[in-house]
Design a protein around this nucleic acid. Structure first.
Lengths: 305, 305
DNA sequence: ATGGAGCATTAGTGCTTGTGATGGTACCGA
DNA sequence: TCGGTACCATCACAAGCACTAATGCTCCAT
């Protein structure tokens, strides 16, 4: 295999027309240059350079090698540059996935911050339920994903590198004119007779709501389903029923509804970021993770509301 | 500078999905492969490869490098191939120059032989008088030149690598019906009264003819000049005059003229091949030189006629 | 002649690149 | 649960590589 360093030295020698000058330019001794060229010549089995009174010139063989040198170095340089771009988060790509209700606050802010910090990175975003995202993350379809889980569901996300972001409580939303809206110490059992609004029955959120209701001793009567928490808020505000809504989906509250915590404690979901542990995550993923962590801290600090 | 050997090793590791398999394929120990990848990773400052249960995979950074690897290796390969072609006289070029009267025999045969032996070499031919060719050869315009000189003219061709080819005598050509055509022991002085046909008066041949005539005690009366020895032969055959013609230009003799040697000895020119000593001659030049030497030997052996 | 410029050569040194042996870990089958 | 196996990392070491410093050689100009 052609030796790049020696090829570079050869180029310098021919360009400057002198071993000594090349040595100086490359910050080598003249001896090192002489030996490098000699070695290249013995490796290639060709006389590459001719020394005469006027200086040093390339032979036909040397000219052939040097004719390719620029292209080779350009190619190598391109590889190094692209690598540096990826490492410096100035290039490459980041395939992000998240669950839908992160779309309200966390994702838009994080994406905006990322794009302004790292405009060179090609950023893509897919939405889906954690159960759907996780295997695709494992398969290498995504570099980074925003997921959530309820207590006891950890087994779905094994084999992923997880970083906890937010402990996201679910609060109860009631129409403002609802009789219970005046109370501040609601328990789930107080809501056993209400009409409930939920996300799709197969979604993790809906299943968890049903499960905690069972724990409180009743079967919720589900009157509407929507996977869009903004729609859910609208339905509650319109008096259609009550809903358990994650705080993440409550950053913009509709008029016409009130939000109450549950006693003795709220259902809670754990929001986390994950990378497919088996494939090396690009540096851009770490950069995004830093941003997400920062946003998460701000979200938590934003108060208990 | 990116290390090509290590890049190759990285590629093999990723392609085979295993350090051990790569080691076997490359005929290294597994340890060497492991160290090479580790070194490449520390040089680039990036994790290039991720080891997990299922095997070894490239990270985003590794994928970037490997994305360039094929192009780099192809480029290097192209350089090596072209060098090998030049060295093996399967490629490259050969810029040949010769004096015009070599065109009759030596050059056509040599060119034909060369092209059939080395079809990959781009061969070009320029014609000119030695005085014109020599400086262009020194300047690197030609790789190989066919030149001639008369005794005492060596100074024109200093700084060239010369290889003697033919001792080329000049014989006297007379019309067949000329009274002297019956004689076989002609001297120059016998021809003092003849009309002479020559090449251009500034050419080395013509100057030499004049000079030897002076030596024989007369000024030749030049009636015609032509740089084409075939034309000169025609003029002699037509009875216009006599001419001193190099044997090289007499391989095809016109009817109507006779050729006689001069006593006590013929003027003679030395035909030789030369390379510009300062620039390394391409291997193709040596190949052509071999052919020319062979042809020259055959020409000499062809008899004293 | 003499000195300078420039390349080659040599000896020496630290580093690189291999090998072989060993150790740790994950997985697999009894 | 316990070896056995497959695989990668690491270590110690040897050979060779890639430099430096010093010296020699040749050509050239003064």
């Amino acid at each position: 295999m052609l030796h790049l360093t020696r090829l570079k030295i050869l180029g310098e020698v021919v360009q400057r027309g002198s071993f000594s000058a090349a040595a100086e330019a490359l910050d080598y001794t003249q001896s090192a240059v002489s030996q490098a060229v000699a070695r290249l010549e013995s490796e290639t089995g060709a006389v590459l350079v001719v020394r005469d009174r006027r200086g040093v010139r390339a032979t036909a063989a040397g000219a052939v090698l040097l004719g390719h040198a620029d292209a080779i170095f350009a190619q190598v340089r391109a590889a190094e540059d692209e690598l540096a771009a990826v490492l410096g988060v100035r290039g490459g790509r980041l395939r992000l996935a998240s669950f839908p209700s992160a779309g309200a606050t966390l994702i838009p802010q994080a994406v905006a911050a990322f794009r302004s910090l790292h405009p060179g990175v090609e950023l893509s975003l897919a939405e889906g339920e954690p159960e759907e995202i996780a295997p695709r993350l494992r398969a290498g379809e995504f570099d980074l994903a925003l997921l959530f889980q309820f207590p006891g569901q950890e087994q779905h996300f094994q084999g992923l590198d997880k970083i906890a972001l937010i402990h996201d409580p679910m609060w109860i939303a009631l129409p403002v004119e609802h009789p219970l809206a005046r109370h501040h110490n609601l328990t789930l059992a107080d809501l056993a007779a209400e009409d409930w609004i939920q996300t799709s029955i197969n979604s993790a959120c809906a299943r968890h709501v049903v499960s905690v209701c069972h724990g409180a001793g009743f079967e919720p009567r589900v009157s509407f389903e929507s996977d869009d928490y903004d729609t859910v808020q609208g339905l509650v505000a319109a008096g259609v029923g009550v809903a358990l809504i994650p705080r993440l989906a409550l950053s913009h509250r509709r008029p016409g509804l009130v939000v109450r915590r549950l006693e003795p404690e709220n259902p809670v979901r754990q929001v986390f970021a994950a990378t497919g542990a088996q494939a090396g995550a690009p540096p851009a993923a770490q950069a995004m993770l830093d941003i997400l962590s920062q946003r998460a801290r701000e979200f938590v600090a934003q108060g208990e509301d």
